[in-house]
Design a protein around this nucleic acid. Structure first.
Lengths: 150, 150
DNA sequence: CTGTATCCTGCCGGATACTG
DNA sequence: CAGTATCCGGCAGGATACAG
């Protein structure tokens, strides 16, 4: 099977072509990175770090709903990607600060733009949903597509 | 008494406060919406739709790796949120086009900014990873934090 | 306080088969 | 072509206990 990383069919896939890291390609490392950044906890963690440095449990409180395990995993992934800097002071009790790197701040800027837009346009979204659900007048099944909102 | 104390309570959760839809709050519907938009397939689907309208299987080809089921689910969720418009023509064989709504285009703009940044800065990320993995000289375990990159 | 190690469950999501 | 229905394995991720 062809590895897809190479330029598959240039005609079909206009997006990439000249870009060395194409997120639309299944095997490109940039897709993994994008998933770290946009992932469920990654995006919120980066957002929470926008204004300064925070300690582990401060972050836990700022990112409502995240578990210890997930926050720890997320922070390690972001640190590995060079988006977050971890500063540990060998005191007792231990004191560790997390903050964005310059690259992390650049990502946060775009991310927060997206988040602000989403928050601002929520009324439209809510209206669209009602309209969508409502248009299924006869059909009994109220909705099967609200995945991930419990 | 020092006045400053009274005000500092707000500092803990500065992000929200005056915003009606706070994505950092576990129970806010905007968080679900953000997850649709930034989710594994949501972000790529929106990105793939940026330039015009596409048919179902065209999209499948543009979003490398997505399954029929996931694309269908993703499209329905985005349509319900009012980001994607579905236009079905009752011909034979069936012909269905998907395209972004104005709201969807606004989201796509921010999202593509983020994607472009991620793609552009990948060399830094790759370097950071190598540095991170390398600094574990003695430790045999090469990496436990590259979740989701198979 | 700042995490790591384990156990366990739900559901994400891939494969396959079928319908209009 | 454009999906839907069903099965099912793997892993995301929560709860808990424990360590430095």
């Amino acid at each position: 099977m062809v590895k897809a990383m190479e330029v598959t069919q240039q005609a079909e896939r206009a997006p990439a072509d000249d870009r060395p890291f194409d997120v639309f390609s299944r095997s490109c490392p940039s897709r993994a990175m994008l998933e770290h950044v946009t992932g469920r906890w990654g995006s919120l963690t980066i957002g929470a770090l926008r204004e300064g440095s925070y300690r582990f449990n401060e972050l836990r409180r700022r990112v409502d709903g995240v578990s210890e395990k997930m926050l720890s995993q997320t922070l390690h992934a972001l640190e590995r990607d060079g988006l977050v800097h971890r500063e540990a002071r060998a005191t007792s009790p231990p004191h560790v600060d997390y903050e964005l790197t310059p690259l992390g701040r650049a990502v946060a800027e775009r991310l927060l733009g997206l988040i602000a837009l989403v928050e601002m346009r929520m009324p439209e979204v809510l209206a669209a949903r009602e309209s969508y659900d409502g248009s299924r007048d006869g059909a009994p099944r109220g909705g099967r597509w609200q995945r991930g909102q419990k």
